[in-house]
Design a protein around this nucleic acid. Sequence first.
DNA 1: TTTAGGG
DNA 2: CCCTAAA
Length: 666
Amino acid sequence: MVFHNRLDYGSSGYQVPPMPRVPSSARGKRSARKKVEGKVEDKQMCAFDLLATVAGELLLERENTLLPHKVGGTSSLPIAKAAIKKGHVGDEKPFKPEVFDQGSCNESTLGSEKQVRYDSQECSLSQRAMGKDARESIISCKMGGFDTPKKARNGRFFPGLKGSCKLEVGIKTPVQADLKIVGHVINGNGSEILEDPMDVDSKPPALISSDSSFEVSIPRNVSFSKCGNEIRVDGDDDENSSGCTHPRVNISAFRPQRIEDRRIRKLLSSKFWKVAPTTSKDEELSSAEMKAIYRNRKLCYTRQRTQRCSFKRRKLFERRSVSASNLDIYNEGVSMSPRLDCIKMETSDPHASLSAATGASSSTSGQKPYESGDYHVKLSIKSFKVPELFIEIPENATVGSLKRTVMEAVTAVLGGGLRVGVVHQGKKVRDDNKTLLQAGISHNNKMDNLGFTLEPNSTPTPPPLLCTEDPNHIITGNVTEQLKRIPAPPPTLELLLAASEVTPQAPQTSALNCPESDHDSVHSPTDASSADKTADSKALVPVLPMKVEPLAVVPPRKSKNTELVQRRIRRPFSVSEVEALVQAVEKLGTGRWRDVKLRAFDNAKHRTYVDLKDKWKTLVHTARISPQQRRGEPVPQELLDRVLSAHAYWSQQQAKPPPAEACLLV
DNA sequence: TTTAGGG
DNA sequence: CCCTAAA
């Protein structure tokens, strides 16, 4: 039986596939993994992380817009121009001062300081006004933490960028971050808005220590802001976050610490992983590659500080999100989070800001009416399709396994790293600098002809398909094998775009809507034994090898470094499984995991003896801690008691009498 | 491949 | 769950 379907995410029940989260610590084949030093908690969007992103953005900006003396021109930097007000103070002003268009900048970015003007030393991140100087200052300010980022200086990451300036970072939500690098913020009338603009030259930039305590302790939704004379880190509990009423942490209190190369790499790599999962960390990234990577990152600005995704939601997203790239997709527009109400796409021209409003947009009613000319194009992406998924599976495989298989295939596709393409009236809009207006996409236009595409990342090949076996998945090995060889479909996942009108209640569709989590269809070992499918499974194995040639189009570029292995999906042990495990261990002891596996989990292909060993380990631990500290599906105390006694018993049986069924109880 | 442990 | 050193 061969399925060759077009899966329609969103409309057919499959939402954005909740794929196993890929750890930021670039998992890959051993060779590759080995090079990863330390792990990065990707859940911790640390300042560095952001900064690294910023750096990348800057790098892009710089190359894109600061072409020697070309700046004043009309071309490349509509953004910057739009943000720069008149009366440039700095020396060489690359751009012609223009009236700052408020519309292009939201309150969240500028705070109450409207009508501000940026001079050469300052800049507001986001593709906004950034002079060369500003750009150069940013990096170091950020990287302020490390005095000499080797990598950076070696020209790999931020070639030529150095200097110092003030940094103001507002991490409002995981996906909506405001980065503001400020040197001097000046009023339209020339007066400084910030009381104590840090003197870039005379004063050392605020150092954001690399101290781990800093990183790990800062929740994603924290925000750095300048308050008075110090930069504070505001814990944001989703409550107001304005003013200086929050518990503060004076960054200066952090001892500046030299950041090792390793550290930087770690951070950067995590970023790379997010966007280009297949990029080996040790791989030398060319400037071009860097740009490509960062190009995928867009900062999202919101109009109000209060608009932020809850931390929890973020967590969910991360948990369920497939890989970096996909995550990015979430972050950048396809997300179904109702809180992500404003997504700006590659443009900063107020007239061209494309925002996709979603459900909660209502809660953001605070947005003020667009000023004349400041039209927004509202879009709602209802679903996207994944064409050309090729799946082969025996007729007597279970529906559950089929779903899983499909899921895996999709995961493989999406996990490869995607970028968004825009198609308007049948034509692909390649010029990212074009405003929507210029592209013919305006608020009063019919969006019928507007579409998005998910394209394979220029970078590498998608990570090998995850192979999650399942007891029910009779032909598991086989199918998976097949799938493994299926290079990511020539993808062009089509983003079906539903026209302009956005429904306020835009379904917060569960992006997490996993197709029947089919969980625990896992046979309890007990059942498994009786439901002997083993024989069948073998008999069924013979499946016509499917032709994958047509799909094997994707050239295995950089295969060596890109063969990243996806982490196995997490499958919590059910009580019945625990029961079986306990029983087996009671009988076999704790040193014969293979036997335990064979005895109690022979049919659970996804449970390896290592898994069982690990589970036992955690069970023992669980049994020792207070019930309050336990998490997950509660395990009957009775079982835990047995775990302890069995563990105690077998711990003493130093010499584990081999096959000699020396059983404890039972 | 399995075990045993640390991460 | 992952990664590995050892056996």
